[in-house]
Design a protein around this nucleic acid. Structure first.
Lengths: 212, 212
DNA sequence: CTCAGATCTTACCCTAGGGTAATTTACCGC
DNA sequence: GCGGTAAATTACCCTAGGGTAAGATCTGAG
């Protein structure tokens, strides 16, 4: 920005700091554009640095992606677990809303991070693909436990129904996060409230007229 | 397949036929892997042909994509319009379910086509990006008219709510199509019935416990 | 002041993939 | 049989982008 093309040599930024900067930039780029469309040079440019430095600090593009994925996966997984574990607590909110609130809170400051988990297509048979599948699977498993309970309670026991409902829930969540990214001014709390409003209306829509 | 590497020269397949084959293959590839990750050579190989032929018949990769996008966009748009126009008819199904049924029916035989519309990221400032945005916008407008009505009926008039609900509906639809692709044996009718089941359960979930 | 080590860049290599030119083969009407 | 045309291929060019090697600049300790 300030200097168009700085000469070689150190800029006084310690390695750990630079790594944090690069990681943040890469997470945003991967989340926004996906794996393929993200270039290492673009990530580097974002923090005012050039490509080789990124490689020196993180290795290959895939390793850089993994370095982004790992913390994001852990944090989101933990947030969802916490929200679901609080099920019996004397909370006013339903489990789905608690989960969403947990996600919004955890994602605030780096909303694109959600899409790092779903940054398709990843190089096939790669460690990146395996780790991403791992985190997606773990999150899906949590969601599936919720949907399965729900369906059983309603007298449905088709496992395909449970699986489809899980897909639907994930799609809904993803869509809400995407909308949120388009509206940066919205706080996590405002989002949660909006979701509560929409749920009650949308639920009525779906329930009311679904029969036969 | 039969001949590992056929010599040059015609194979007796007329241009129009080959074009249909290539178009079908390309639609599937673009839908499955997205624009970037789809290679012209892979599309060509799928119909037992080589890259230059595809370029001769369709021009650039972007033009090939457009040739896929255009009919898909028109067909899906028409299907949704038809489903929404039938609103006042003496049908048992609700509008959302009718729309889904229309989509499933239209997509049967080429389910990945839905994702051609959302094959991000497209080359920026390209005709492809403009046309895709056009169809997405048209579909969103239809959805938005539905959600806006719905919210007004419920006493909510925040335009942001309507927009978010539209996002949610699109995400839901996309997720259901994705699940369907994972389960090729499911007929469009079976899908519609499944959605009806899930809607009544899911709706109850969302409505019941959303308050404050 | 000088040397050592950390930071950062320039210059380069290599492959994948979009795109084109020229050529080869098959078919069809005469 | 014999052009002429349509259908395909082989062989090539070119760029974008991942990745590396080597050198340049700064900073801090002694």
């Amino acid at each position: 920005m300030t200097s168009t093309a700085s000469r070689a040599g150190t800029k006084g930024v310690p390695r750990a700091d630079r790594q944090r900067q690069v990681l943040a930039a890469a997470t945003e780029e991967f989340g926004r554009h996906g794996y393929d469309a993200t270039t290492v040079a673009a990530v580097a440019a974002r923090v005012g640095v050039t490509k080789p430095l990124v490689h020196q600090y993180f290795g290959s593009k895939e390793e850089l992606f993994l370095a982004c994925l790992e913390p994001v996966g852990e944090r989101l997984l933990a947030a969802i677990r916490a929200a679901m574990a609080a099920a019996t607590a004397p909370t006013a909110k339903s489990t789905p809303l608690r989960v969403l609130h947990g996600l919004f809170t955890e994602l605030e400051g780096q909303r694109e991070a959600w899409f790092v988990l779903y940054a398709d297509p990843l190089p096939p048979d790669s460690e990146a693909a395996r780790r991403a599948a791992h985190y997606r699977g773990a999150i899906d498993a949590l969601a599936a436990s919720g949907t399965a309970d729900l369906l059983r309670g309603a007298g449905l026991d088709d496992p395909l129904d449970a699986d489809a409902l899980m897909f639907a829930w994930r799609g809904l969540t993803t869509a809400l996060v995407r909308w949120w990214i388009h509206h940066p001014d919205q706080s996590p709390e405002a989002m949660t409230e909006r979701c509560a409003r929409l749920f009650s209306v949308g639920g009525a829509l779906l329930t009311g007229v679904a029969d036969s």
